[in-house]
């Protein structure tokens, strides 16, 4: 029987720390890889658009297409191309290939870290359901970001217009306007919105000197600002809670990354390359091609919400 712990020899605290550091460094480098070939073309940049236009120079990619290249490279190139267009001429969309999804939840975790999500707030959960009966059993994984509907029910119900559809199709929330009534949470047919109750990951955790090392790291992390919608958000509870505490929250297709020329975190962290992202208005984009596949479908088509997230079955 093989040794279940083949790395036991390296299991000292120092070796583990080195291993973790190396892993983190590799992950960061991996996430930044598509940016390696970027150069700035300030002249092509449109003026910074209100509510989510590119801020600063728009990056482009000078790697020419190659046979067998990673789809991330292609999507990165297409992203840079789309950012040059005026905002209302882009239509961001996502395609998720359920046949390639292995259910690793790297997208869920990547998203939660990117957006500094507190407990109870999730933008991209992944459902893991068992299909069939023994001996014909399989597991079905369906990652569920916000569908960024063309006809979003959440927008129509908001009593103060705090949630709205941007010209590029992303459904956004104005954290400074949301009153926290949660009507949008009830109206979303995909339950893609969660409410920030103000909880922190270290709530009820052990405190005091012996636990300080672990706790300091965690509290440090959870008080880092988030950058959704290109603004700095520091959460805090109180008599008047500091947004996004007390607000509805949702996936933004990482709008803040897009405007810096980066793909959404979930597309970047997907180990099986099962998440594709791009401009549905560009007929040559990968997402346009895939969304037109015969096996492409959308969730709850019958409601007429026209999601911009497609699933390949």
């Amino acid at each position: 029987m093989p040794d279940p712990r083949p790395l036991a020899a390296n299991d000292s605290p120092t070796a583990r720390r080195d291993f973790l550091l190396r892993t983190v460094a590799a992950l960061v480098a991996g996430a930044a890889l598509p940016l390696a070939g970027l150069k700035n073309v300030a002249s092509a940049a449109p003026p910074a658009a209100v509510a989510g236009g590119p801020t600063g120079p728009v990056p482009t990619l000078d790697i020419s297409p190659q046979a067998g290249e990673d789809v991330l490279i292609r999507m990165q190139r297409e992203l840079a191309r789309a950012l040059v267009k005026p905002m209302d001429e882009r239509k961001w969309g996502m395609v998720i290939d359920t046949r390639k999804c292995v259910g690793c939840a790297a997208c869920t975790v990547g998203c939660s870290l990117e957006n500094k999500l507190p407990p109870g707030v999730v933008y991209r959960p992944m459902t893991d359901t068992e299909v069939g009966t023994y001996p014909n059993v399989t597991r079905r994984f369906i990652p569920r970001p916000c569908m960024q509907c063309e006809n979003p029910p959440c927008v129509a119900v908001c009593p103060v217009g705090a949630t709205f559809k941007r010209p590029d199709g992303i459904v956004a929330i104005d954290y400074n306007a949301c009153i926290g009534c949660r009507y949008c949470l009830t109206a979303c047919p995909y339950q893609a919105r969660t409410f920030d109750f103000g909880a922190d990951w270290t709530d009820n955790a052990a405190s005091g000197r012996p636990a300080a090392l672990a706790l300091d790291g965690a509290t440090g992390y959870e008080h880092l600002a988030g950058f959704e919608y290109g603004e700095k958000w520091t959460r805090a509870e109180g008599v008047i809670p500091q947004s996004p505490v007390g607000n509805a929250r949702k996936c933004t297709f990482c709008a803040h990354r897009l405007e810096k020329g980066m793909l959404p975190m979930c597309a970047t962290t997907c180990i099986g390359r099962a998440t594709f992202f791009g401009d549905l208005n560009d007929p040559t984009s990968l997402v346009s091609e895939l969304a037109a596949s015969a096996n492409a479908t959308r969730l709850k088509e019958e409601l007429g919400t026209e999601p911009k997230v497609f699933y390949l079955l």
Partner: peptide, 23 residues
């Protein structure tokens, strides 16, 4: 009762909230 069933199958187990049980 209008709110007690998941809109998508499996959502109830997809991601849990260990702190406040908000999911």
């Amino acid at each position: 009762p209008g709110l007690v069933t998941p809109e998508l199958r499996g959502l109830e187990r997809a991601y849990l909230d260990p702190i406040g049980g908000r999911l």
